[in-house]
Design a protein around this nucleic acid. Structure first.
Lengths: 253, 253
DNA sequence: AAGTGGTCTAGACCACGCA
DNA sequence: GCGTGGTCTAGACCACTTG
């Protein structure tokens, strides 16, 4: 008469809670609607607030919820598709105006960047900061590292503003013939400055896209772009410009 | 003489802790080395275990640490680069043997998949499960959805095993002329079955790569691949086969 | 001022890997 | 059986937004 273990693997509470909430979001809530506060929700489900929060964190990670301190928890819209790779390779910010130059500095790059650029560690590079807005909200912050050798004709530029200097550097860069590019995507957490620009808290999950631009037989520029992981789906369109249509969610049961 | 607020924005403890630990990892630890257990670490830094864990979670998210229940916390090797997009588009598993077929079923697809395939909801599709191994450890689990119309000649196949049937379906698929493909990357959390295959706990952060394959003027196949976000950096090589060199090291040993 | 989510604590017990 | 990380609790206080 041992204790018959019908549930050999008891599901964690927060996991079950996440499932229940997820189904409730699909059926009983609409995008933008605010949920009851965490203390009420925890009481309603009979768990500690920390446990409830563990479930909410997961749902926020999956882009289902959006939480803002002092405001509340709201149902997030489906992730927006953001194009980060095109079939025809282009220099940064050639055609589309999705990226907005913020400022521009001339400084020594981090060690990792210097390695990728195959340049000396103490060789100063142009660092252009840009921010990307989509559907009215910030989705990415970028640091563009451009060795001085890639844009030699910058001695006689007028600089009415930081942004203007950034645009001048980009204009010069586009005179080179782009031979190729490649990108890498990895998970990261937002640094303090990126977080501020993305309207998130430091440490928020982000997708880091590192892109190398090749010209004249070497790496002519390096872009490190930080995308909000909760609101963005990065699209790499190889052929047409078609969009992937998503149901309520991607991962199915 | 009011309380002079020199630190107008007090940094959260776990954030500071993460920074300290991160620097310690760089200078005082080697890859594979095991850290002191959480209770000792928490005591050493004078914080509660929950706070210490918050810092460790972030470091694990960034791929700096690896934690395993019953074992301990170890210093993780640099993320491995995993190629997920090539310049020349290829059918799944054409050249490389990185993907291993696991099994194959014929069933109705989830609603989201049916939408992407532009097929009827109740139209059964082949569902091929594959797993990808790199450097000796599992990095991705995939579900490949293939409408029956894409592989018509499957009535007379012999099926000595599940994996063999999967290979037969893939072989048939490759007879079609691939016209294009596009991919999307987004953050997700591992479902229970994926987690098992990836040797992670359910809910672990993953990078979900959704790829559509076009042939004969329609979507001929849809792949949903789930990559370990902690160990993988997804590379999209547009031109040459060059690898991005990152920080101190490129790949694990 | 009130209400929200974010941080933090000091415990407890559980599931797992290993010797 | 022991030590590990994983889960969970019931509180407390803080930072932020809004009326």
């Amino acid at each position: 008469m041992g204790t018959t273990q019908l549930e050999s693997v008891p599901e964690p509470k927060y996991w079950h809670l996440k499932t229940v909430l997820s189904e409730a979001l699909d059926s009983e809530f609409t995008v933008g609607e605010i949920l009851p506060n965490e203390r009420d929700l925890a009481a309603r489900f009979g768990v500690a607030r920390a446990t409830l929060r563990q479930a909410l964190e997961q749902l926020e990670l999956e882009g289902r919820l959006q939480r803002r301190r002092g405001v509340g928890t709201t149902v997030a819209p489906p992730r927006m598709g953001v194009a980060v790779g095109t079939g025809r390779q282009v220099w940064p910010s050639t055609g589309d105006d999705a990226w907005q130059p913020v400022d521009c500095a001339l400084a020594a790059p981090p060690a990792a960047v210097a390695t990728a650029l195959e340049s000396a560690r103490d060789q100063a590079v142009h660092i252009v900061r840009r921010s990307r807005v989509s559907h009215g909200q910030p989705v990415a912050a970028e640091l563009l590292y451009i060795p001085s050798t890639s844009v030699p004709d910058l001695s006689a530029i007028d600089a009415p503003s930081e942004a203007a200097r950034a645009r001048a550097v980009l204009r010069e860069l586009q005179r080179l013939e782009l031979q190729g590019q490649d990108s890498a995507v990895e998970l990261g957490s937002a640094r303090a400055d990126d977080a501020r620009e993305l309207d998130r808290l430091p440490g928020a999950p982000v997708l880091v896209v590192t892109t190398r631009f090749f010209a004249e037989g070497r790496t002519a520029a390096l872009s490190v772009a930080t995308y909000r992981a909760d609101t963005c789906r990065l699209t790499f369109t190889a052929s047409g410009g078609v969009e992937i249509h998503h149901g309520p969610q991607q991962q199915a049961s």
